[in-house]
């Protein structure tokens, strides 16, 4: 295996001394965040080190069974590229009135909302690890899957890694601004955060990238600005050429609906109330009436944060096998 299985806190990393991604975790998360917080942070119960190590070994045994296999991940590549190609084709087809615009609007909204999932797998290099023949496809999927959201892959990957390393930290977690008191406010916030003067969504990401300041962050910042300008230029050109409805219903509106859906289900719902700082409390297990598919599998998001190498479609099965171990670690598994 060429990757660490899971994300570790600094303290736990000392127990295991794993190389790789775990070494990227920056310190000061618990101390700094807790000092700034107005409320008490939730932590998993302190267990004896022997028990902890034993449970972790059991957890890892389960996780290993569900880790992404590039051969089984091809479906993500096929669906992403197919949907992207279809979306592009819809522009001339609707402009020439060969097909009506409303089914295209529904399709564009669908891929805007769901396209983040393959991109997310690519961010974690689950579609193809570097140095393998699948890596090219991994990067390609990442690049095209969120174009409809005007969300460049370089920025998405960097921000998502920071979210993992600093999950729920009010300052360091780029997604912390999605926090809201309840579901209705969370939907409203997804929209408020996108307002020109708001400190949320992509505006917050840009500020995070400026703060990080590494060459990768500068590239991501440049990509973001160029993609934003290019996309606006494309929208304006379409609109002024007499195809404002096409621009609106194939790109602009699906993007906004998709972003709100993603922000709610992938950020707010699994992390609410964002009061946990360690690996067993920074997400929650929850039940929703919309079910597994419409919630994009986020009810089992804890598995993703523990083992990002497990692909989204497998987190449900991994969760149920891991559930007794998670309960011993203090995770509230009662909803599912």
């Amino acid at each position: 295996m060429d990757r660490p299985l899971d994300d570790l806190t600094r303290e736990e990393a000392e127990d295991y001394a794993l190389p790789g991604d775990a070494g990227l975790i920056e310190g000061g998360v618990e101390g700094a965040a807790a000092e700034r917080s107005a409320f008490e942070w939730r932590h998993a119960p302190q267990l004896d080190k022997h028990v902890r190590v034993n449970l972790r070994l059991q957890e890892r045994e389960v996780a290993e069974k569900f880790m992404a296999d590039p051969k089984h991940m091809r479906i993500y590549t096929v669906l992403t590229l197919g949907c992207f190609g279809l979306w592009l084709a819809m522009f001339p087809l609707t402009m020439m009135q060969i097909i009506p615009i409303w089914p295209c609007f529904l399709f564009a909204t669908f891929i805007a909302a769901v396209g983040y999932i393959p991109s997310h797998e690519a961010m974690h290099r689950n579609i193809g690890r570097p140095g393998t023949k699948y890596h090219f496809w991994n990067e390609l999927v990442g690049q095209v899957a969120t174009l409809i959201l005007i969300f460049p892959f370089s920025m998405a990957r960097l921000m998502h890694m920071h979210h993992h390393y600093h999950c729920n930290d009010p300052v360091m977690d780029p997604d912390y601004t999605d926090g809201a008191s309840g579901p209705i406010m969370a939907w409203v916030k997804t929209w408020l955060n996108r307002q020109p003067g708001a400190d949320g969504s992509i505006h917050h990401y840009k500020r995070c990238l400026e703060r990080i300041g590494t060459p990768e962050a500068q590239v991501a910042l440049r990509d973001t600005m160029l993609l934003q300008l290019g996309s606006m230029g494309f929208l304006f050109a379409l609109a002024w050429s007499g195809y404002a409805f096409v621009a609106c219903f194939l790109f602009w509106l699906p993007r906004h609906l998709g972003l709100s859906y993603i922000r709610y289900w992938l950020s707010w719902a699994p992390h609410h109330p964002r009061d946990g700082l360690d690996r067993y409390t920074n997400t929650r297990v929850f039940r929703t009436w919309v079910g597994h598919w419409l919630s994009l599998g986020m009810q089992y998001h804890i598995v993703h944060h523990l083992y990002p190498g497990i692909p989204n479609h497998a987190t449900k099965y991994a969760y149920y096998e891991m559930k007794p171990i998670l309960e011993q670690r203090g995770v509230d598994c009662s909803p599912l």
Binding site: P196, Q228, M232, L235, F236, A239, W240, G242, A244, F245, A247, C248, W252
Partner: peptide, 18 residues
């Protein structure tokens, strides 16, 4: 200035076509 540009680049033709 993107909100203003968006107003004249997108909202204006969208309004006229609507």
């Amino acid at each position: 200035w993107m909100p203003f540009l968006f107003g004249i680049g997108f909202i204006a033709p969208l309004t006229a076509q609507t």
